[in-house]
Computed example of a mutant assay.
Amino acid sequence: MPHPPLRSFGRIKSRVIKPRQAALMDSLLPQIRVPAEPFEPRTLMPEAAEVWLEIGFGGGEHMAAQAARRPDVLILGAEPFQNGVASALRHLDEQQLTNVRLKDGDARELVGHLPDGGLERVFILFPDPWPKARHHKRRLVQADLVAELARVLKPGGTLRFASDWADYVDWSLERFTASPDFRWTADRADDWRTPPADHVTTRYEEKRLGDCAPVFLDFVRA
């Protein structure tokens, strides 16, 4: 029996979840949780013009903002941190967003259940950097995930990676550019130093917990 992949995230819960958010975990989450087996995303929202995926949505601010901007897009979100899931549910409930479906667990399981070429866009924003060298094997961005993301993205689809840890930026750029399936779109330094026009800055990003200014890497599926 194959071993499950190493965890690419740390703790899954910290403080006690607030009562209102806990109630949403019991009521709203079961309604919008993605299936636990292979599925066709557009069956969840047949009228969707596109399907996007956010891997590790944190507190859900970015995901909710993108969903509000594009109500015609189905956004799949995956996050193992239960407090983050609870926070995201609050955003969805307050804004009455109906075009988001969630995986409260490892994003790699969700990606593995998606069909070939089923996505138009992927976001990986400020994932756990695992800065110590002995922990690099736990980083989310690995060659096998890059290959899986290439499988589920349609040709011409886009992927955005962002981090404020310089070594993780270099690590991820090396792995994506090593794949024949992805093309880095940057032509000049401002292309990765300046937040993209459609980026949504979150409270986590504003804390600047890394060792460099945020870097944004945009790729196109060849």
Rank of each mutant, 00 (worst) to 15 (best):
I12W: 12
K18L: 11
A22M: 13
A23E: 14
M25W: 02
M25S: 12
D26I: 03
L29K: 03
P38Y: 14
T43F: 01
A48T: 08
E54S: 05
I55T: 10
G56C: 09
G58T: 01
M63R: 11
A64E: 08
Q66D: 06
Q66A: 07
A67N: 10
A68Y: 03
L74D: 08
L76V: 01
L76W: 00
Q82I: 03
N83C: 07
A86Y: 06
H91R: 12
L97P: 03
T98Y: 04
V100G: 06
R101H: 09
K103F: 01
D104H: 15
L119A: 02
L119F: 07
R121V: 03
V122M: 09
F123P: 00
P127G: 10
D128L: 08
A133S: 15
R134K: 15
H135M: 04
V141T: 07
Q142F: 00
Q142L: 09
A143N: 12
L145D: 07
A147F: 03
L149T: 02
A150Y: 07
V152I: 13
K154I: 01
G156H: 15
G157T: 11
T158H: 14
L159Y: 05
D164M: 07
W165E: 11
A166S: 13
Y168G: 06
V169M: 07
L173S: 03
E174G: 13
R175A: 05
D187W: 00
D191L: 13
R193F: 03
T194H: 07
V200H: 13
T201W: 06
T202M: 11
Y204C: 08
K207Y: 09
L209M: 15
V215F: 04
R221H: 03
A222Y: 12
